[in-house]
Write a protein that binds this DNA or RNA. Structure first.
Lengths: 152, 152
DNA sequence: ACGTTATAGTTACATATGAAACCATTTGCA
DNA sequence: TGCAAATGGTTTCATATGTAACTATAACGT
């Protein structure tokens, strides 16, 4: 909790500064997971996110993938070109709109997914195991509130 | 809360996956702050973190700055060379160990700090204002637990 | 003292990322 | 219809970042 006794311009104590703490925690967690599938499948985090979204929503366009993952379209485009090349994602052209692509996991892509999804879940479980039930439910509630549309 | 009814290999629902949520939240928060001081002072996040640490601990070496900020030494080295060049940080050589540098904020550096620190605090307050007291204290407690040394 | 090893910090290179320009196609509307 | 504006997606370029190699100095063990 920010200490009211420090004047506003006093040096920040990074280790108690919420944005900093979130950043450290988030990076540590994401990196641990990413290292895992990176090492085993040479799959980047953006690529995995694209695959995860296509596993749930088959036939999306690239723009829709970008929306769902909150990544920008350039990142998605790059991830897709690699994924299509390695054969884990299929890309067709939308009939009726030649600009749009129609994306989905290939058989091989599903096979990767079958391995990586449980891996990711395992990391999450591991993280949550540090909390008790009460803490877990507060965490979800707090995240929901904090994420209620960032008002700049 | 992860839903027990989904088998482990089912498609991840990113929007309920804790590591993903943390990453989105953390990026949004940090980016909002960074945009702010970036625009006004052409100061990157790593540079600001170096300055924040030097505001609290005068005379650190580069390695110590890296430890305190959890950034790697190359990032710190680069940040420092820019900060020294713009004149916001002073760098001397440790007497008795010519490898070590002795770092600190300059007058100009302090002036920047006086503006940026309150800005950062304001963003944090803004974020925390979405929570009530009870939620805030749970959040701190939860972060403490989650951050208790990542056991890989 | 002296060579080996460790440490502080920088440089070089390879890769990742983001913004803007770009191409193709489609939409909106005069 | 036909042409300006919008949209989907890729390419280009400039910048950021991480890893490994490197330089200089210091510490250690004999």
């Amino acid at each position: 909790m920010p200490d009211e006794h420090h004047p506003d311009h006093a040096p920040l104590e990074l280790e108690h500064f919420l944005p900093y703490r979130l950043s450290i925690l988030s990076n540590a967690v994401s990196q641990a997971i990413a290292d895992d599938y990176q090492r085993r499948f040479d799959l980047s985090m953006t690529e995995w996110r694209v695959m995860a979204v296509l596993a749930r929503f088959d036939g999306l366009s690239a723009r829709e993938v970008a929306e769902r993952t909150l990544m920008d379209k350039v990142a998605v485009s790059r991830a897709l070109s690699k994924l299509v090349e390695t054969g884990w994602v299929t890309r067709a052209i939308h009939d009726g709109d030649k600009r749009r692509s129609v994306l989905g996991l290939s058989e091989a892509g599903w096979a990767i997914h079958e391995v990586v999804a449980p891996m990711a879940r395992e990391h999450e479980r591991n993280l949550l195991s540090k909390l008790d039930d009460e803490e877990r439910s507060w965490l979800v509630r707090i995240l929901d509130k904090l994420q209620a549309i960032e008002p700049k």
